[in-house]
Amino acid sequence: MTRGNRILLSCIYWAFVLYVFVPLMLMILMGFKDSKFIGFPIKSWTLDWYLGVFADAEVVSTLTYSVVIAVLSTLISVVVGTWIAVLLEGRKFLGRAAIFGLTILPALVPGIISAIAFRIYARLLGIEPGMGAIIWAHAVHNVPFVALVVMARLSTLPKSQIEAARDLGADPIIAFLRITFPYLIPAILGASIFCLLLSFDDFVRSFFLGGYEPTLPVLIFAKLRSGMSPEINAIATVALVLTAAIGIWAERFTRRANKDTNP
């Protein structure tokens, strides 16, 4: 009975693995098709589409644009999110619950509504659609994730360490920089990578706040609206490889960092 159950469940697991992997595999494969038309069967193969990606100036500049946006918005999110976390964790004050609720609000608002609200607010603030607006929207949207991750880490910091530092004469800023901050580094790095990926993959905010220059997901979307082609497969595969590689690296990195500090 249990044995049968186990086999059935493991079949479901592997079927699920297929469900999440096969579409992406097919997409990568289709980029090697030597024809303009997407579809099976693939009769002859070519590397041209993949080589073409790196020769295409538009794709390369879009890729750079997306990476710059991801890095800058992540820097803002990390600073703000950490600051909020330090304020909220382990402190009781009037309105703390309200501040916490507002902190996670951007993560709860469904994508399209968040994009629309940012679009309207950007006009109020006088931010023109374009790079600045996208960076701002991504930064605000990612703050909750940083705050939550850093708060979780901060709650495990022994209070006695800070007290010891203060007793030995460190002022609050030095105590933060020498005790709290180094302790938070794994969480901050993990959160940064998460933000980088969120920003790099984001479509809806980039679409509604972007100017004429597209980010990578917006470029793929625009190309898809005018028809599928193996060229898009190649571009999408580059985005896929980049994000998956960063994701896997981050996963390993954070696990190792956690092992180092909580043996």
Binding site: D202, F203, L224
Partner: peptide
């Protein structure tokens, strides 16, 4: 987790290739 690191648009496109007429 690996496929979920990949963005919304790329994964939507992958589904288009999976389910298209060809």
């Amino acid at each position: 987790l690996i496929p979920f690191w990949v963005g919304e648009i790329v994964r939507t496109y992958a589904i288009m290739i999976l389910l298209g007429n060809t």
